[in-house]
């Protein structure tokens, strides 16, 4: 029962979604399943939050290395959760003042917006920005013209890096009209629309075939590895 029922749930859900794209009568079933999926996806956020809290509470109770940071994680988690769930400091929506929780958490000046503006924005965007430094260091150390393939990679990177900025115009903008295709800015477009398109298109076709094959194996009950415990 632990394996057969989940397998049939997957088969029914999958075929309902697939058939809804082809048979108009099955369209409403597709809608029902999509709607349920959306709500389950939202509950998955709650599961994610719960898992995080559980993991850090365990870490804290075991006094694992770095448990002090778990206090910070849990503290910020709980404070954010309370502010958001109880809409602390949020006035009712002026259109529906009779409903106590009708106001949006995103109202300017609210505690929720404060967290967004002064915590989430700087923290997440700086995390992403950090990679600019590492990519520079990696380029210096690892980007070596060792063979034909590496040279192609390197030359393309140069064309794109220079062609997508004003440097391309300065360096090759003077090329005559008949050789305009060799200007760096045009070369970078050519690289993207011809070589990059060809490479990525082949990758996409390969992935599409793989997804279709794997999906059908799941829907026909051939692939059960996702249930855990081997492919039996």
């Amino acid at each position: 029962m632990k394996r057969i029922i989940p397998m049939w749930i997957a088969i029914i859900g999958g075929f309902a979604m697939m058939l809804s794209s082809f048979i108009p009568l099955a369209e409403s079933w597709g809608e029902v399943f999509a709607n349920v999926f959306n709500v389950v996806a939202a509950i998955a956020f709650v599961l994610g939050a719960g898992s995080l809290a559980k993991q850090h509470l365990e870490k804290l109770s075991r006094r694992d290395a770095g448990w002090g940071y778990s206090i910070i994680t849990l503290g910020s988690f709980i404070v954010t959760l309370l502010i958001g769930m109880f809409k602390i400091g949020i006035h009712p929506n002026p259109n529906f003042p009779q409903a106590a929780y009708s106001g949006s958490n995103n109202t300017e000046g609210s505690a929720w917006s404060w967290i967004y503006e002064y915590m989430i924005t700087p923290l997440t965007s700086t995390m992403f920005a950090l990679l600019a430094f590492f990519v520079a260091s990696a380029a210096f150390r690892a980007f070596r013209a060792k063979n034909t393939e590496a040279i192609l990679l390197l030359v393309t990177a140069f064309i794109v890096l220079l062609g997508r900025t004003f440097a391309g115009v300065v360096l090759t903008g003077w090329f005559p009209e008949w050789a305009s295709g060799l200007r760096l800015e045009n070369l970078s477009i050519y690289v993207m629309q011809v070589f990059n398109t060809a490479g990525n298109r082949a990758i996409m076709i390969g992935i599409a075939l793989g997804v279709a094959a794997t999906g059908l194996r799941i829907l026909f009950g051939i692939d059960r590895s996702w249930l855990g415990g081997g492919d039996a």
Binding site: V39, L52, G75, F77, I120, T124
Partner: peptide, 29 residues
């Protein structure tokens, strides 16, 4: 850095949970 990292994790998890609750679970479920 570790403090900032811990804060990102805690705040983001709660933030997503709350958004999922108010934006999808409340109106739909």
């Amino acid at each position: 850095y570790k403090i900032a990292e811990s804060l990102v994790v805690g705040v983001s998890a709660a933030y997503w949970g709350v958004i999922g609750f108010w934006d999808t679970l409340v109106p739909k479920m």
